[in-house]
Design a protein around this nucleic acid. Structure first.
Length: 462
RNA sequence: GUCCCGUUCGUCUAGAGGCCUAGGACACCUCCCUUUCACGGAGGCGACACGGGUUCGAAUCCCGUACGGGACGCCA
């Protein structure tokens, strides 16, 4: 049997981070077993449907670096087939028409809750001999077993058992003839040959309802794996309140897709002591057995750590392209020349861009308050002295510049290199923190270096 | 309210009865490196929710309590 997994998001907005992880697990599981992933948009709710949301989902999949097999499937377009199944169930006596109004249902709900009953629908139309009201369009409900218990085997949760009295005669076809989600998923999963349903924990209870349909149709049920949900850093539900709940936001914050993949994979799944896991290793190692059973909190620190790691590994040219949107000015040659050092320091692409920015700027630089403070009277003397020395320097390379600066420090600062370098740092970068200045000066070139030094030296007009 | 699921360092987790004086990672602290900030390197702090069983022996099995999460729509 070849494996078929599924990616069935509902288009409600941006791609949620939990959705991304679910896709990752489905993708890994399918690919590992040489199977397929089908992408199906659960768009049966027409009131909330928005093509932009579908596009957001597609963008999300693309960004995170995963793919799917075949065309994107629209659940809505298959509604006729869903309705046929409902009719089939009706004919077989496994489903029935129910003429209750929403108001009646509300009343039943209130009532059942007050009495502490597990389900609310009283099944009044299940075997009713009453003549149906002519002016009411009925829904179709499926007949659930009245007593006994049902067990669902789950690859993550183990065997889960529920008493059948917890199961309602749920609606499978709305009064307007459109299928309800519960029906649509089952029919689609069956028709598409889905073998493994790997989805969020929030669907665990639905599994029992969905199995009702499989049983009534005599279809083979898929294997299930219910993943625990991702919680926000404070243990509550992951939402915008926590900074970011969608993959798009993480992209915009400067995270690398491979870092996200590693983080998401490891959040809720483990392979011994391994933390840094490549795509190839993930493919080789992934299994459902080591999926954790309890919900995990989102941890920005760990994500940051992974992101920093993957930035160091990333190709320089690629990084240059990725930080371009965050850069106020461009100077590809300089930034590329310094990339090795820049990327060893950055946690996010935004930080990388921020650290690289000084290379592309031109005088007059803007100075941070800390840099401003560094540029006092003593500093200007040092800058002037350095300017003179550098002007005289023939071999304008990092080692030669370093030697010059060290010599100068001996002459005017009792050997304290910092006394010379910190003023230069402020003058050259506009900051009090930066990568190595010797290398930076070489990259800026003699002309630009002198220009920046003169702009803040004692003779400057500022 | 009813039902389902879960509970190991602050966080993510390893652990499937003796290998556990509970391992790793992130964060935090200290030191080293150092022109700044980082990177990197070396150390350190730090957990089996609680209470009962079962067993020669329990983080691991059973029961209960507490806490957390989820589901109870003509939403998906």
């Amino acid at each position: 049997m070849s494996v078929v997994t599924r990616f069935p998001p509902s288009p409600t907005g941006l791609m949620h981070i939990g959705t991304a992880r679910t896709l990752l697990y489905n993708w890994l599981f399918a690919r590992k077993h040489g199977g397929k992933v089908v992408f199906r948009i659960e768009d049966t709710d027409r009131e909330r449907y928005d093509p932009a949301h579908v596009q957001a989902l597609i963008n999300g999949v693309k960004w995170i670096g995963l793919d799917y097999d075949g065309e994107i499937f629209s659940q809505y377009e298959n509604r006729t087939r869903h309705a046929e199944v409902a009719q089939e169930l009706l004919k077989a006596g496994k489903a029935y028409y129910c003429y209750c109004s929403p108001d009646e249902l509300d009343a039943m709900r209130e009532n059942a809750k007050a009495e502490g009953k597990p389900t609310f629908y009283d099944r009044r139309w299940r075997d009713s001999k009453e003549t149906p009201p002519a002016d009411v369009k009925p829904v179709i409900r499926i007949k659930a077993p009245i007593d006994g218990a049902t067990t669902v085997p789950d690859h993550v949760q183990g065997d889960v058992t529920v008493n059948n009295e917890q199961l309602d005669d749920m609606i499978i076809l709305r009064s307007d003839g459109t299928p309800v989600y519960m029906l649509a998923v089952v029919v689609d999963d069956h028709d598409m040959g889905v073998t493994h349903v790997i989805r969020g924990d929030d669907h665990l209870n639905n599994t029992f309802r969905q199995n009702l349909i499989y049983d009534a149709m005599g279809w083979k049920k898929p294997e299930y794996a219910h993943l625990p949900l991702i919680l926000g850093p404070d243990g509550s539900k992951m939402s915008k309140r926590h900074g970011a709940a969608s993959v798009e936001e993480y992209r915009d914050m400067g995270y690398l897709p491979e870092a996200m993949r590693n983080y998401l994979l490891r959040l809720g799944w483990s392979h011994g002591d391994d933390e840094i896991i490549s795509d190839a290793q993930a493919l080789e190692w992934f299994n459902l057995e080591h999926v954790v059973r309890s919900p995990a909190r989102w941890d920005f620190d760990k994500l940051n750590h992974l992101n920093a790691h993957y930035i160091k590994l990333a190709d320089d040219q690629r990084l240059l392209e990725l930080i371009a949107p965050f850069l106020p000015a461009k100077n590809d040659a300089r930034i590329l020349a310094m990339m090795q050092e820049l990327k060893s320091r950055a946690v996010t692409l935004i930080q990388l861009a921020d650290e690289a920015a000084f290379l592309a700027k031109s005088v007059p630089l803007d100075f941070t308050p800390e840099a401003e403070k560094l540029l006092d009277a003593d500093a200007k003397v040092a800058i002037k002295a350095a300017t003179d020395k550098i002007l005289a320097l023939q071999d304008f390379t990092a080692p030669a510049i370093e030697q010059t600066c060290r010599d100068l420090a001996k002459d005017i600062a009792g050997g304290k290199l910092g006394k010379v370098m910190m003023p230069l740092r402020a003058a050259l970068t506009g900051r009090d923190k930066s990568p190595s200045l010797f290398h930076a000066m070489e990259i800026l070139g003699k002309e630009e270096t002198i220009k920046r030094l003169k702009a803040v030296g004692p003779d400057a007009s500022r």
